[in-house]
Design a protein around this nucleic acid. Sequence first.
DNA 1: TCTATATAGATTGTACGCAATTGAATTGTA
DNA 2: TACAATTCAATTGCGTACAATCTATATAGA
Lengths: 153, 153
Amino acid sequence: MTTNPSPLALSNQLCFAFYSVSHAFSRAYRQFLDPLGLTYPQYVVLLVLWEQDELTVKEIGDRLFLDSGTLTPLLKRLESAGHIRRARDRKDERQVRISLTETGRALREKAEEIPKEVGCVLGLPMDELRALTEQVAKLRGRLHDSASLSAKS
Amino acid sequence: MTTNPSPLALSNQLCFAFYSVSHAFSRAYRQFLDPLGLTYPQYVVLLVLWEQDELTVKEIGDRLFLDSGTLTPLLKRLESAGHIRRARDRKDERQVRISLTETGRALREKAEEIPKEVGCVLGLPMDELRALTEQVAKLRGRLHDSASLSAKS
DNA sequence: TCTATATAGATTGTACGCAATTGAATTGTA
DNA sequence: TACAATTCAATTGCGTACAATCTATATAGA
């Protein structure tokens, strides 16, 4: 599609570029995550928990833009793999608080090498990487804003 | 994650940015695709067929970086919705050739407005959009190359 | 020609994503 | 205090993604 000469609208091109690069990234991470028995979404959840433990499902969802329909089964898999624990919050029984197990915390060291390995493939200088990340995050923000606007009507 | 002050590796940041923006795009398109009864991947397949009809499943997969495991059921849904036909190629019975129906071709007009509507939300000048698209496509290329390298070993 | 290999697509099984709904717990308000 | 509205997580149902496997067909070499 990207090499197609016909006048396809640019936003289509950009959307497809993100759609396909995100799958390509997921495949690139897979070769490193498979040995750890993790999928990319599971890895991202662990990244969040390694930064801050004892988050609720909602708090994880807010950081990752995912809802309980996605997270509940994913977290159950991380739990049965022994990486996390799920427990109702005593103060507010509606919430489920997620905590890392020893195993889950230990996994961090093995996972630490992954972004470096993937980074090599990209072949972009640090500052370009940073600029690109910011630009993409800004776009995501605009899309979210417009979505919440149209949801209000 | 993007606002986290800790030294998370940049490639993780970039990967997550793509992961989340691609979902955000998919949601943005959904509000326009829902009335047409299409999902985003189905829409992309139709985009390809509107450019060039009578492609095989493999040719569609090459353009979209998808395999038959994804495409076969998706194409069956497009077929039962009346947008396409699937038929074995006479010359090579292994191949299945996909052709648009009248309905499928007619859908193009309705779909033509979508990228414009989404484009408004992005708020980026044309040339920046184009540059960003190219940069992302280049990254995807590198990821694919490294994937095929590591698959050879 | 006969057979080994390669290729195209379908199938199976697992894991997301997400809309819509449900049920339980909490909060706001009269 | 009652009770309606809200919030949180779980569940259900559908549609991707994709690895692994299978079947049918085509092609290349001996």
